[in-house]
Amino acid sequence: MKKLQNLPLYGVVFAILFFLVFPIIVVVIMSFSDSRFLTFPPKVFSLRWYESYFLDPAWMRATRNSFVLAILTTILVVPVGTAAAYGAHMCKMAIMRHMQLLLLSPVIVPVIIIAAGLYMVYAQVGLLATKLGLVLAFATMNLPYVFISVLAGLRSYDMAQEDVARSLGVSRLAAFMKVTLPQIRPSVMTGALFAFIGALDETVISIFIAGGENQTLPSRMFMSLNDEIDPTIASISTVLISVSFALVILMSLRSPKKANG
C-alpha cells in the first residue's frame, strides 16, 4: 500500500532525473553518429568525429594546453589552499571569519565580473593569453574548493593527535606531515580533484583571457559552438565526460570510507 501511494512521486522523480541526464546521453550517442546533421538516433555509427578531434592539431593543442594548465593549477593551489585551511582551523583570532570570507570571494563574486576585471588588468600588465596569467586565475578560482574540502577534513579530525605527536618529540610541522596529513589525505585529494576538474572546465575566464598559443579547450569549444554546430564537439564532450567521471570514480574507490564534499 505504501509503495502504491509513493508511485506518483517516483514517477515524477524519474521524469526529472531523465531531464537531467538526457542531454548528456544525447551528446554521447551523437558523438558516434556518421551524419553531419543532428539526427537522433543516428542512422549510421562511426568514429569520424573522434577522428576529426584527434587529428586536428588546433583541437589537440587546446586540449594539451588545458591539461597542462589544470595540472599546474592543481600543483599550485593544493598546498596554498591546504596551508590556508590549516591556518584558519588553528587560528583563534577574531579576524579569521573575515579572512575566510575573503577567501570565499571567488565563488561569491559572479565569474563574469571577475573575468571582465581580469581582462582589463591582464591587458595592462601583459598577462593576457599567458600560461602564468591563466594558472594564477584558475588557481584562485578553485582555491575555495580546496580550502573548504581540507577545512572539512580538519574539522572531523582529532587535533589531540597532533598534540600527542608533539609531546612525543616532533615539531608541529613534522606532526602535521607525519600524523595529520596522512589522515586528512582524502579531503586534500578531493580538493585537488575539484581544482583539477575546475581548471579543466574553467570556461568564462578562458573566454576572456585565453587565446593564441595558450588557447584552452573550453574557450575553443565555446567559439566553435557560437559559430556553427560541429559534431566534433560531441566527441570532445564525450572525452571530457569520461575524464571527469574516471577521476570521480577513481577518488571514490580510493576513499571508500566516506564521501567527502
Binding site: 572546465d201 565555446f222 560531441a234 564532450s237
Partner: peptide, 10 residues
C-alpha cells in the same frame, strides 16, 4: 560534473 558547455551543446 559535466561541463556546462557540454550540457548546453546537448
Amino acid at each position: 560534473w559535466t561541463s556546462v558547455l557540454v550540457r548546453t551543446y546537448g
